[in-house]
Amino acid sequence: MKLIFAGTPVFAAQALQALLAAGHDIALVLTQPDRPAGRGMKLKPSPVKELALQHGLRVEQPLTLKTPEAQALVAEVGAEVMVVAAYGLLLPKAVLEMPARGCLNIHASLLPRWRGAAPIQRAILAGDAETGITIMQMDVGLDTGDMLSIHALPIAANDSATTLHDKLALLGAEAIVATLARLDACVPEPQPEAGVTYAAKLSKEEARVDWTQPAAAIARAIRAYNPAPGAHTLLAGEALKLWQAEAIDGHGAPGEVLRADADGVVVGSGHGLVRITELQAAGGKRLAAREFAAGRSNLTGTVLGA
């Protein structure tokens, strides 16, 4: 098919790569403008732009799709379908109606659960047993369009947002190729009214660990906020980031480090214990618990968060 592809991060680049491999004609790629990154804050192209340029594709980076100029870019292509994956810009009604067969979105949840900005992290935070990919016919609402295909994926006990993202990126790439291949046979299915939840954007403040919460909830939060914004607490008044953890049985005062060894840094909570296996002190590198504990002989007995 003749397609327009709109996306920005790695999640979207995986889908673009799959569409190219499947032989689709990507007539235009839309992606976010280059952003400052790194210590030098030099402008850096998005992963989608980098991939598109490698394949000699036409790339446009409008600040909005609401202007006549931006809409003309879309209209002149005459695409059958626009595929959208984590693009980062709203598509106005005029743009949604331009491709002959509409705009399809690769959404990283089992709609209508977790509509919105952070479905991967919210699924982990909530303790969901599974998530997945929904290929959706886009409309003017927030992830409210009819569903064309649904692809479920179990959430593993040790999944972080990083690992789950990578699994869903691969699944999303496979799902959009499969859906386009049988698009004529797809019957759009309205989303059920029951079970709607919203995946609000993440904030740094919410990623601060509350040690009075149950251990299971704390461990999920640590995994959900990996890689961003990063679960954090205080160690002797200094910032401490927590990257990987699990809940285990036991009792301890909230925030108190009960032991620190090769198996992990074990901390009390409101119910149960949290075993942290990867940490990062302020100004330091991410370390396995073994390395982190080796340089801190007085860690046991410390109260985190104070």
Rank of each mutant, 00 (worst) to 15 (best):
K2P: 02
A6D: 12
G7Y: 04
L16H: 08
L20R: 03
I26W: 00
P33F: 12
A37R: 12
M41T: 04
L43T: 07
K44V: 02
A52R: 00
V59L: 01
L65G: 02
K66H: 05
T67M: 13
L73E: 10
V74C: 04
E76W: 03
V77T: 13
M82I: 06
V84P: 07
Y87M: 00
L89R: 14
N105S: 01
I106S: 02
A108K: 09
L110H: 02
A118W: 06
A118P: 03
L125Q: 07
A126I: 09
I133Q: 02
M138L: 08
D146I: 09
L148Q: 08
I155R: 01
N158Q: 05
D159A: 14
A169P: 11
V177D: 00
C186P: 10
G195H: 11
L202G: 07
S203N: 05
W211T: 10
A221N: 11
R223L: 08
P229H: 09
H232C: 06
A236D: 15
G237T: 14
W243F: 09
W243D: 02
D249E: 15
G252A: 10
A253V: 11
D261V: 01
D263S: 11
S269V: 05
V274Y: 15
R275E: 10
A281I: 00
G283L: 06
L287E: 15
A294C: 14
T300Q: 14
